[in-house]
C-alpha cells in the first residue's frame, strides 16, 4: 500500500528532522533508495525545484516525492505525514513550555544532535555532487567534466559577497546553473 507507506515514511522523516528542511535530504535519500519508488535520479531535480518554488522546503519536497510516486493522493499523504509530527509535538510542548525548556535532557539531546545533523547534510552534499559529476557510478566513463566546471563555478559565485555584504540567493544560483546547462549541453547540439 504505497499511500500508507508514503505517509509513514514522511511521518518518520518529519519526526527526525532537526535543523531545517535540508536536514531531510539524507533521510529522504535513505528511504527513497531503500524503497522502489523509482525516483533516485530525479531527487536532485526535486531538490532544485523545491528550493525555487515558494513555501517551506520540507512541504515542497514531500509533496513532490508523493506526487511523483503515487499521484495526487500520494502528495497529500506525504505532506500530511511530514506535517503531523511537528503539529502534535508543538501542541504538547507549547502547553508544557517551561518544563520542556529547562530540561537538561532535552538540551543535552540537541547538543549532540546539532553537530551530527551538519555531518549528515554534508554527506548529502557529497552524494549529490557525485551523482551529478559522475552520472551515477564513479568511473572514468561516467565522468562529466562540464558538470564539474558548473558545480565549482557555482560554488565560487555563491560564496562571493556582492557589494561587500550579501551572497546571492539560492534561486539565483539555480538560475545560473540552468543557464550554464543550456549553454554547455544545449548549444553544441544546435551548431
Amino acid at each position: 500500500m504505497i499511500l500508507l507507506e508514503l505517509f509513514y515514511t514522511f511521518f518518520k522523516i518529519g519526526l527526525f528532522t532537526f535543523g531545517g528542511g535540508y536536514a531531510m535530504i539524507p533521510m529522504i535519500t535513505d528511504e527513497v533508495v531503500s524503497r522502489a519508488w523509482a525516483l533516485e535520479g530525479r531527487l536532485i531535480d526535486f531538490i532544485a525545484i523545491s528550493e525555487s518554488t515558494p513555501g517551506p522546503f520540507a512541504i515542497n519536497i514531500a509533496t513532490f516525492v508523493g506526487m511523483n510516486s503515487a499521484g495526487l493522493l500520494g502528495a497529500i499523504c506525504a505532506t500530511l505525514g511530514v506535517i503531523l509530527p511537528s503539529f502534535i509535538i508543538i501542541l504538547i510542548v507549547a502547553a508544557l513550555f517551561d518544563r520542556f525548556n529547562r530540561s537538561r535532557a532535552v538540551k543535552g539531546f540537541l547538543w549532540g544532535v546539532r553537530p551530527a545533523v551538519i555531518g549528515l547534510i554534508a554527506s548529502a552534499a557529497v552524494s549529490v555532487f557525485i551523482s551529478a559529476v559522475f552520472s551515477g557510478e564513479i568511473s572514468k566513463a561516467g565522468f562529466d567534466l562540464p558538470a564539474l566546471c558548473i558545480a565549482v563555478g557555482a560554488l565560487v559565485i555563491s560564496r562571493i559577497k556582492w557589494n561587500g555584504k550579501k551572497t546571492i540567493h539560492p534561486i539565483a544560483v539555480i538560475a545560473i546553473c540552468a543557464l550554464a546547462g543550456i549553454v554547455v549541453y544545449g548549444l553544441p547540439t544546435v551548431f
Binding site: A48, I121, A122, A125, A132, S158, A178, G181, Y185, G186
Partner: peptide
C-alpha cells in the same frame, strides 16, 4: 524537452552548492 533537459543537467551540478552552503551556514 532538449532545452529543459540541458537546464536540469546544469541545475543538478548546482544543487550540491545549495547543500554545501546550508552546511556552512549551519556550521
Amino acid at each position: 524537452n532538449l532545452w529543459v533537459d540541458c537546464a536540469f543537467r546544469g541545475i543538478r551540478a548546482g544543487v550540491f552548492v545549495l547543500i554545501t552552503n546550508a552546511v556552512i551556514k549551519l556550521g
